[in-house]
Simulated assay, not measured.
Amino acid sequence: MACALKATFTRYKPHLSMIQTQVGAAIVYFLTEAAFNQGLNPYVYVTYRLLIGGLIMIPFAYFLEKKSRPKLTLALFLELVFLSFLGGGLTYNLFFLSLKFTSPAFVSSVFNTVPSLTFVMAILLRMEIVNVKSPRGRAKILGTLISLAGVMVITFYKGPALKSLWEAPIHMKRQHSVHEKRVLGPILSVSSCLVVSSYFIMQAHTLKKYPAQLSLSAWINCIGGVQSAVFAVSLQHKPAAWSIRMFDISFWAILYCGISTALATFFMVWCVKVKGPVFAAMFSPLQTITVVVSAYFLLGEKLYTGSILGAVSVIIGLYVLLWGKERDQSYSNSQHQSSLPSDETIAADKTEEANLAEKEEP
């Protein structure tokens, strides 16, 4: 019984890791929104968040991977700098800049295109093989299309709102100073999604050269934090913007989000190494679903039928794609096992070698 439970946990550990990552990201959304409403600068927040995440990862990376960490060459370091730029400063700052010109609901919905974009990029770069003649390949394509259709429903269709069943236990004051721009906002949102997809793809490439997952997570956060600090200073010259009061909402938001960033980066790096970039990206829609459901039950926000229909489609598409990938991996493993010599073949080869050696003896 214990062995069966251990085997089941090992098999679904990547799934649980990504679910935990997206749920943690949903909590980050509410803490961040509350901190921004109290005056926290978004670019300062991104800098502190990445630097704290990096500082948390450094001791684990140093002691646990001291002997297994590859040698860091100049070319590899420059690649890490570019990877950190994609996954750290550029991604987060584009996200919050697009949030300034649109709305949280729009940005979080558009962000769900990341799995589909990553899947298409992986196919173009031959990192993901799709055999349309096999059920596995058709499942991956169908799952991507269903998930993308669900994202489109969430983004463009509201439908009637559901009636609240009870009074919200948490009340959050919101600022209504969002300056919507029909062209610039969506362009920035789509750009952030393209950057995240590129980050997943490049991460898989870098892991082949630098397989130390903890060290890579520490590098991404630290270098991304420094890059974000340079960007933030160029936009925010007032020293008061960098001052954080102890134990207020901004302090707790930065602390929690820094810890969440460290864990999320490590889990994503590990899942990309074990399952590939498409697998890690496919769990991104769960963040929006968690945010929408939590906002309805905890904050009393309106929940529209379009969001429900879209969420169901996203989950179905996610399940279908993961089914295809699991079957793909099982098929690859079986092919690899069949290509290996069997015990009988090895024994026969050894017997033949022994007979030849006896004949060659004088």
Rank of each mutant, 00 (worst) to 15 (best):
Q203R: 03
F251M: 11
S284A: 11
V110S: 09
R69Q: 11
G185C: 09
V269G: 06
T351L: 14
Q175E: 12
E79Y: 11
P115R: 06
S342N: 09
F251P: 10
T91G: 00
S307P: 01
L124N: 01
E65C: 07
I201N: 10
Y92I: 03
P211W: 04
D343S: 10
S339R: 11
F200V: 02
G185K: 09
L148T: 13
L318K: 06
L286S: 04
S332M: 10
D248M: 05
A7C: 06
Q227E: 15
L125M: 11
P70W: 09
R69E: 10
A168G: 03
L86P: 08
E358H: 07
L74I: 11
P115M: 10
V291D: 02
S334Q: 10
L142E: 02
A139D: 07
E326Q: 10
S68R: 10
I201V: 14
A168D: 04
W242H: 07
L76C: 09
E361A: 13
T305E: 02
G53R: 00
K275T: 00
K302G: 08
L235G: 03
T91R: 08
G150H: 03
L286A: 03
Q22N: 12
S108E: 10
L148Q: 01
G143K: 06
A61S: 14
G53S: 08
K163T: 13
L90P: 06
N355R: 10
Q22L: 09
T102H: 09
P160G: 07
M152I: 08
F96R: 05
V190R: 05
L188Y: 04
V274D: 12
R138P: 00
H171Y: 08
V233N: 01
A139R: 09
E344D: 13
S134E: 11
